[in-house]
Design a protein around this nucleic acid. Structure first.
Lengths: 221, 221
DNA sequence: GTGACTTTGTGCGTGCGTTCACAAAGGCTT
DNA sequence: AAGCCTTTGTGAACGCACGCACAAAGTCAC
């Protein structure tokens, strides 16, 4: 988030920024921002602030964005197609090495300049291109099987869009993005705002379920 | 998450489940699960567990899924298209009332059985269909403007896919999904596993940045 | 060069979510 | 009917992230 705010500042020609300004742009507390940045070292100048360009480099390096990452997308449905065409990946050092799908009617299609390949070739592609991150955009039922295969083939990071909890061996990272759960969380708060269902008393502020806080959030009693 | 695990159990014909089993399926600690469920009331039977069907109903009601929610998707690029065709919404009580885009070459196109409308009509559509949740899938530059308009038109929940921090008045909820940040977090851990960049010492376990924990995660020292 | 002002870096307190561990409660067997 | 066994519900402790507030440090003006 800081990196994103910083590059936006960079594009506007700003060369120096205070923790207060950057925190506001990133939607966090300024003390938290300073503490976060202090973990990278002391890159600020007291009385002045942080040099934008230098900070961009330091954060990029810390996040590992100075090197390229090779990604494979498995499952070329609506979501897989969107991911394949998503510009935000390439611009941040993520290179899509392959689109794979088990559906024969999709295999061979050209999507965003890439030819969809059969899932049979998964192991070849991962090994051949040095894929280290797999994006799983398959239906729920196929996700665990695909996950097992990519892990066996050497992938140690998985981004999972399928609505299932994947189990993986130690040393493998899994992150999950669940679109309908995001909507459900919003619906939950929406219901609260409307007074709650079936005579249920609205929760007091702070009674919301965990994991629902966000950069900007206001929940009224 | 619990609801998803429960419906999966329901489909397999399981009628009763213990906190231990359900917690494993949802990827959480069993004590946490019991405490979460206890907030809904005492719906378990000691010595036996929870009745799946009853729990599904209770959670659905609590989350507000027993009623329908009307959604508008603004921005019909790759991602907007994928969202429009995403089956997970309709099956959980979310109805897409409109697809809107500012690009004249997209307006009028038929996507997933819906005609893309001009963003000019945003206020009409929100008022006419009673939209309460807006999904913003526009480019970053347009997001805040669209957000301001949907909020002014009465929307009080926003799901934001644009890579910007939206500012909204009190009483409006915003949730953000940022695809490239998910990949960046994975890349960060991946880099750590590889030994860190430029002779940087790998962080000890627990030194990972906040907000990076997940259902399944293993970060090696 | 000196003083005043600005902003960083961080020790400390607070609040919250998570987990452990156990008592209470219900079912099942004999 | 009684006792054993399983599982829930929850009090208490732990750990962590966040925010406050201030001292240290560096800049800028005079």
């Amino acid at each position: 988030m800081y990196l994103r705010a910083l590059t936006a500042l960079q594009e506007r020609g700003v060369s120096t920024v205070s923790s207060e300004e950057l925190a506001a742009a990133a939607g966090v507390n300024s003390a938290k921002l300073r503490k976060d940045l202090s973990h990278l070292g002391s890159y600020g100048t007291r009385g002045v602030g942080y040099e934008v360009e230098y900070l961009v480099y330091q954060i990029s390096r810390e996040l590992g964005l100075t090197q390229d990452w090779v990604v494979a997308i498995i499952g070329v449905g609506n979501l897989g197609r969107a991911l394949a065409g998503y510009g935000g990946f390439a611009s941040r050092g993520f290179r899509v090495a392959g689109l794979l799908d088990a559906d024969e009617s999709i295999v061979g299609q050209e999507i965003s300049g890439m030819t969809v390949q059969n899932t049979d070739r998964l192991e070849d592609i991962i090994a051949g291109h040095g894929v280290s991150i797999a994006v799983i955009a398959t239906p729920a039922g196929a996700a665990q099987g695909v996950c097992d295969r990519v892990v066996a083939a050497g992938v140690t990071s998985v981004l999972n869009f399928a609505p299932v909890v994947l189990s993986v061996p130690d040393g493998v990272d899994v992150r999950k993005v669940d679109l309908s759960i995001e909507l459900q969380i919003l619906a939950f708060h929406e219901q609260r705002k409307a007074g709650g269902p079936d005579g249920l008393a609205p929760l007091a502020a702070g009674d919301a379920p965990p994991g629902t806080t966000q950069y900007v959030e206001t929940v009224e009693a």
